[in-house]
Amino acid sequence: MSGKVAVVVFPGTNCEHDVVRALTLVGLRSELVWHGQGSLDDYDAIVIPGGFAHGDYLRPGAIARFSNVMAAIIDRANEGTPTLGICNGFQVLTEAGLLPGALQKNSGLKFICRAEKIEVASVASIASSTIVPNQVIELPINHFEGNYTISQDGYEKLLENDQVVFRYLDNPNGSIGSIAGISNAAGNVVGMMPHPERATDALLGSTDGLLIFESLKAKIS
């Protein structure tokens, strides 16, 4: 183990360099890993960045889940390796069955690209462990399919297990419970629609995204 983060790149991924930059800012080393790669043994954490993996054909994440690298991601995630999916990465994690539920088209049928206020609802996850509980942060969202959907039973299970990590203050897309991000029951797999890597410089309006990467760092070292 080397304290290195794998930043997974599918054909159509487009936020990988922003993620690498954000990881560097908090002092984490990372490498871009092409989706055809079959092993992630050299890495201590995995980030699936945003974009349009495989053109979002069929459904976002539906084709990506059959890429070679997914078997390695599923194995490592099940072993407890910190795994973070951002935006399209969140969609990939739900399609792969690593996170429950699904992301549907926004209720207003509009692509939304703007900053949103987000409450950190759980600090039990790898993406929020060093954040003050219930802190409100500001992160940009940039999606058409961000409407988190799950059965009522599934939603209650998320609440029971403290798996709701991020909630919008002003629900922009129709997500059940204003959910912006969730974790698996163990807390080591997190999917979130907002883009923390785009909020890492005061010049761009917010540095709150660094809180997410600092939490990830705390779980690696």
């Binding site: 539920g101 699904a102 549907q104 959907t149």
Partner: peptide, 8 residues
């Protein structure tokens, strides 16, 4: 397995 998502 592929064409539909059983959640939705």
């Amino acid at each position: 397995r592929l064409l539909s998502n059983p959640v939705l």
